[in-house]
Design a protein around this nucleic acid. Structure first.
Lengths: 301, 301
DNA sequence: TCAAGCATTAAGGCACAGCTTAATGCGGAC
DNA sequence: GTCCGCATTAAGCTGTGCCTTAATGCTTGA
């Protein structure tokens, strides 16, 4: 009577603002959704979704169906996972969320290779400006984040250490000179990565003797893409605070030099989060394992 | 990945002695089963059923799959039931088990009518010589039984009162005469219904003053079909112990007369059992309701 | 007033899951 | 040895589930 595809269909509908929207996410035309819903309702002799005046609304029966459907779907999917794990197979969909810069430059290559090695895997990499905000969407397996997240029930697996460094181009250092103490910063042009709600222009510095101080800077340039800011620094426009993973190659090559090397900012270790709501699977474990190995081994290039 | 039909398929296989046997119960040809199983195993990259040397045997993975599948199937079927109930619909399969005689003569008409009134219902009536034995097969919704069953966790719903009576044909009474006290029975030809393992030839009689006695009779005729025995009595061959429901019309018409009317045998009320393992559904509730009404209202015709 | 987006109905098409038949090999019973 | 039932493979067919396009009417906002 009821089929898994019916349950999937109706749960997909339940989160869509309109049938047309559902059609788009399902990758079919609106009539397909409309008539399939009508057919299902006929079959059950029940109205599932009230679709008058604009907004979709689940009826009581629809809501009940969706609710129970989620349970059944979870169950059968976890069963499929179990079977796949018993076969020692790495297959199925793997949703990874990562921040823009790090995701593109560090996670993507690993995921791509992992996908090539396991032809039945269907990797999906979603680069977000705000990975943490995407957490509650539910549809992800692994979330990579730069910087430990406080106040989380989810266990965070450390992929690699990562410091935040103040840097400027060698050219800038030669032309303008570098600050020798935090207070000198005010005389310099500063760029910051303004990602989430955190106050990017307040730097909690720790000095050589363990002295702590909060330095308020007046950024002349801000961007939510660290790579843009790195380029800005490489072009000699000013001093930026940047993750070690991003600019260590530049440091080694001498394109960038550290600013106030005796002062440090809080570490922003790279961590991976596993979605507690997702079914645990072999592919997830193996991928995180791989990620840990490769990210740690990366020459911070 | 896994579909409900896969789960149904594999659970069906799990109870079959051979693929060919499974094919027969599934109503398809053996190759269909063989290749479908092969396909499923391919898809999971696992061997589910060991089919060497005669007997089928589930592998560990197969057993696990079947086990979990049962849970999922139960879940989704109960969901379908719920939706159907919310629609106030009486539909789907309805497995009824009943004993031979009572089933054919009393249950069948009710079920037939109930089925006609609810075109989407798929009634299945299974008449058994030993309904109680069939209980553990699991595949039933309602079981009708004549006589309360002891030592059962299952709640028994009384459909109608029913006495066991000793009767003979009027012809026999006139020709041979009737016994006046239990001890006289030894001089008469007696027929009994020998159904289950119960000792049909030992009658626990209760007398007019509440006197109890066990009377051992020597049946000259026994049969597991009460209707055959009734015919035997109607033909004037002897005295039989028979359920009231079966012979009350004969009594009213004078074709049969009661023997030892002051002595009574234990009642054998007609009860309905609901399969506790089956999902509760509207159709079952409504059917039992209907059964109760109609059986009670029957003129014991 | 028009344009755009949404929902729905009707009609047609297509892919494919799942079946069939046919043929082969195997093992056990007699 | 022969026969019968089971399992399997190969090849071919088909029903139908599910989609598409096309056309219509409704609502809403510009």
């Amino acid at each position: 009577m009821l089929d898994v595809s019916d349950l999937r269909f109706v749960t997909a509908l339940s989160t869509a603002p309109s049938l047309a929207a559902a059609a788009r996410t399902l990758g079919v035309t609106p009539p397909a959704v409309s008539q399939r819903l009508a057919l299902l309702e006929d079959r059950l002799h029940l109205r599932l979704i009230e679709r008058g005046r604009g907004q979709l609304r689940l009826t009581a029966e629809g809501a009940y169906l969706v609710d129970r459907a989620k349970g059944v779907l979870d169950d059968i999917e976890s069963l499929a996972e179990d079977m796949s794990a018993r076969a020692g197979r790495i297959d199925g969909p793997l949703h990874v969320i990562a921040p823009f810069g790090f995701g593109r430059l560090r996670v993507a290559p690993v995921l791509t290779r992992f996908g090539e090695e396991n032809p039945e895997l269907r990797p999906m990499l979603s680069l977000r400006e705000d990975p943490v905000g995407a957490m509650n969407d539910g549809l992800w397996d692994v979330l990579v984040h730069v910087g430990r997240l406080p106040n989380l029930r989810i266990t965070q697996r450390k992929l690699a250490p990562n410091r935040r460094l103040l840097v400027a181009s060698a050219d800038y250092a030669g032309r303008v000179g570098l600050p020798q103490k935090p207070q000198d910063m005010a005389a310099h042009r500063v760029g910051v990565v303004r990602e989430n709600q955190a106050d990017a222009s307040l730097w909690p510095l720790t000095g050589p003797d363990g002295i702590e101080m909060n330095l308020r800077v007046q950024p002349v340039y801000s961007c939510n893409d660290g790579e843009v800011l790195r380029a800005w620094a490489l072009d000699g426009f000013g001093i930026v605070e940047r993750s070690e993973w991003s600019i260590s190659a530049d440091l080694r090559a001498g394109r960038l030099v550290r600013v106030l090397p005796d002062w440090s900012l809080p570490d922003a270790d790279i961590v991976a989060l596993l979605n507690p709501r997702a079914v645990r699977s072999l592919r997830i474990d193996k991928f995180v394992e791989r990620l840990t190995a490769e990210i740690s081994a990366m020459p911070m290039a």
